Amino acid sequence: MARLNVPYDFSFELIALLSSKKPHKLAWEINRIFGFSLIRTVDICLNFDKEFDMYFINYLYKTDHLSVRLIKNKSVSDMENPGGFLLPELNQYDYFLIVEDFSEELTSEYIADILRNLQGIEHLLQVEADNLKNKENLLF
């Protein structure tokens, strides 16, 4: 049986954030600093196993030339769904900021420099999505 190999596009900026802030407070701070309007949208659902799905808190700001997404790394857990991580290899980070700037005005270096000074961000890491073991989890 032949397999279909489809190359995925990971041409976005990915910044991992270590922060104890609640998701809505972090989204508000990012909105305030960058002039975005990150709004909580439907949680991202990933089916890791036939027995359970994992849901991840998701904030999105989208224009014609820019897409910014703030995602909580740890899934929302309850009695039916055990907790897990969107990117287990980066389980020490609380959030991911994914930026797709088609005008190429926002770079991860620029965003990281500003976020480093944000109170409540203990650490951040600029990540090459292509090098991640579970990079397919970022395709939604």
Rank of each mutant, 00 (worst) to 15 (best):
N5Y: 12
V42N: 03
A27C: 05
N137P: 14
N131Y: 06
S108N: 11
I121C: 08
L38Y: 01
N81L: 01
D130M: 09
S108L: 00
E29K: 15
K62A: 07
L115M: 08
L115S: 03
N58S: 11
F36M: 03
H123S: 12
Y59D: 02
I121M: 08
C45S: 09
A129C: 04
S75T: 15
R3M: 07
D130L: 12
T107L: 00
T63P: 01
K133E: 15
E128P: 00
S19F: 06
I114T: 12
E104C: 13
Q119E: 15
S11R: 12
I33L: 06
L132S: 12
T63I: 04
R69K: 14
L132D: 11
N134P: 02
L46G: 01
I98Q: 11
L124N: 04
E104M: 14
L14N: 13
Y110N: 04
E13P: 00
K25E: 05
N47Q: 15
S37H: 10
L86C: 03
Q126K: 06
Y95P: 05
S67I: 11
S67P: 02
L124C: 05
Q126I: 13
K135Y: 09
E109Q: 13
I57D: 13
S19M: 02
M79V: 07
E51C: 09
I39R: 09
I71W: 01
N47Y: 11
R40E: 07
L46R: 08
R3A: 10
N134V: 06
D43T: 08
K72C: 02
S108G: 12
S108M: 00
K72P: 00
L90R: 08
L97H: 05
F10R: 14
P88Q: 05
L125K: 12
G120H: 10
E105Q: 02
D43S: 14
N5M: 13
S19E: 08
D9K: 05
F140R: 07
H123A: 13
F10W: 15
R116K: 11
A129W: 06
H24K: 06
K72Q: 07
E104A: 14
N5I: 15
E122L: 10
T63A: 01
E80V: 02
L18N: 09
M79F: 12
H24W: 00
D94Y: 01
F12P: 04
Y95V: 10
L125A: 08
N117H: 09
N73F: 09
T41K: 13
M54Q: 15
A16K: 05
A2D: 08
R40N: 03
D113F: 08
I57V: 13
G83H: 04
Y55T: 11
L26Y: 02
F96R: 02
K133N: 11
L60R: 09
F48S: 03
L90F: 13
E104L: 15
P88F: 07
V76T: 06
L60M: 04
S77Q: 08
S103V: 07
L46K: 06
